[in-house]
């Protein structure tokens, strides 16, 4: 009887329903517009084509790591090891560029994926809270990076050609931005169009129910952290190629920035709400803030303080308190 009736509603009501369904992302979009307006007024150079490209460049790297992070957060966990993974991957890439050439890329990505897989395994099988698991493993990954090389490694000039995969341009657009778009599409498809992606949402929304409905919660949790490792690995190779170097503290700042992007985008720390699209907007907000503040001349550390406050505000707004009886 209602089989067809439900899809057919007045357009206005449908739009209204959609807006009500996406409050978190609309906050983030509002924030984006606000900051763009502020910086556009505050600086003449902000809206130039060149500056937009600069923003896109840095956004691409942040996007990759945040795309991974959001999967960890969607399960209700967190990944504090993305920095360690990025650093480790950058060092591995620089170390293997000369002997392996192009094949250094898949190798580095594999290292990052393996690191994320380990996080997932420890978190789900040993049943250790993810923030402890990844706090510990971050140290381990950094140590391994240090053991490979204490000093920053630079790309050998013979390999510059290989690095053009990231640094070159295709049809007048910089590859790194194309990569950013590709990464977004990849993670978007995983979240929206695969069973694993759906199961991650279910798990984050209601773990007990997911288990009772036959979802393999161990596997799904492990996959979520593996995806986080993949995101960090992609960001690591992009950043290292972009800088022509890799070193054991390269990724540290991205721990904060990736979490901030996810949270500002409106993905709930309790899991199950938000996602890749929200995080895209969160990353844009972050990149605009970083760039705009640089242009206006606010120093890097003031920016960090500002982000810290922004994260607290974003969580205070988006955190679903009804889901937990006790806030710890």
């Amino acid at each position: 009887m209602q089989k067809d009736g439900i899809g057919k509603q007045p357009a206005i009501r449908r739009i209204k329903g959609k807006l009500a369904g996406l409050p978190a992302i609309s906050y983030a979009l509002g924030m984006l517009v606000l900051f763009i307006a502020i910086f556009a007024v505050g600086s003449a150079t902000f809206l130039t084509r060149y500056n937009m490209l600069t923003i896109g460049n840095s956004a691409a790297i942040l996007l990759a790591v945040a795309m991974g992070q959001v999967f960890a957060i969607l399960t209700g966990g967190i990944d504090l090891s993305v920095g360690g993974i990025m650093s480790l991957v950058s060092v591995v890439l620089m170390k293997t560029l000369e002997p392996l050439g192009f094949w250094a890329y898949p190798l580095s990505l594999a290292v990052g994926i393996a690191a994320g897989f380990l996080n997932g395994l420890v978190n789900s099988r040993l049943r250790i809270p993810s923030f402890i698991t990844t706090l510990g493993s971050n140290g381990i990954f950094m140590s391994i990076a240090y053991m490979i090389s204490i000093k920053p490694l630079s790309a050998p000039s013979s390999s510059f050609g290989v690095l053009d995969i990231v640094n070159g341009t295709t049809l007048g657009i910089r590859n790194i931005m194309l990569l950013g778009v590709l990464v977004f599409v990849l993670f978007f498809v995983i979240q929206r169009y695969t069973i694993t992606g759906r199961n991650i949402m279910l798990l984050g929304s209601n773990e007990k129910m997911s288990w009772l409905s036959g979802v393999d919660i161990f596997k799904v949790r492990t996959i979520a952290f593996t995806l986080s490792g993949l995101g960090a690995a992609l960001a690591g190779v992009m950043l290292a190629s972009n800088l022509y170097s890799g070193y054991p503290t390269l990724g540290t700042v991205y721990i904060l920035n990736s979490i901030a992007s996810v949270v500002i985008g409106g993905t709930a720390m309790t899991g199950g709400a938000g996602g890749v699209l929200n995080t895209l907007v969160g990353v844009m907000v972050m990149s605009v803030i970083n760039n705009g503040m640089n242009i206006i001349g606010i120093d890097v550390y003031a920016q960090q303080s500002f982000l810290g406050v922004l994260v607290i505000i974003a969580v205070a707004i988006s955190f679903d308190r009804s889901k937990l009886s006790v806030i710890k």
């Binding site: 967190i78 923030f131 904060l256 979490i259 949270v263 720390m269 120093d299 550390y301 003031a302 920016q303 960090q304 303080s305 500002f306 982000l307 810290g308 406050v309 994260v311 607290i312 969580v315 205070a316 955190f319 937990l324 806030i327 710890k328």
Partner: peptide
């Protein structure tokens, strides 16, 4: 707010202020 995220935010905030 869950303490682990609010204190993480506080840490970044205060560290930035300290450097400034």
């Amino acid at each position: 707010m869950p303490s682990f995220i609010s204190t993480l935010g506080m840490s970044w905030t205060l560290f930035g202020v300290a450097i400034m």
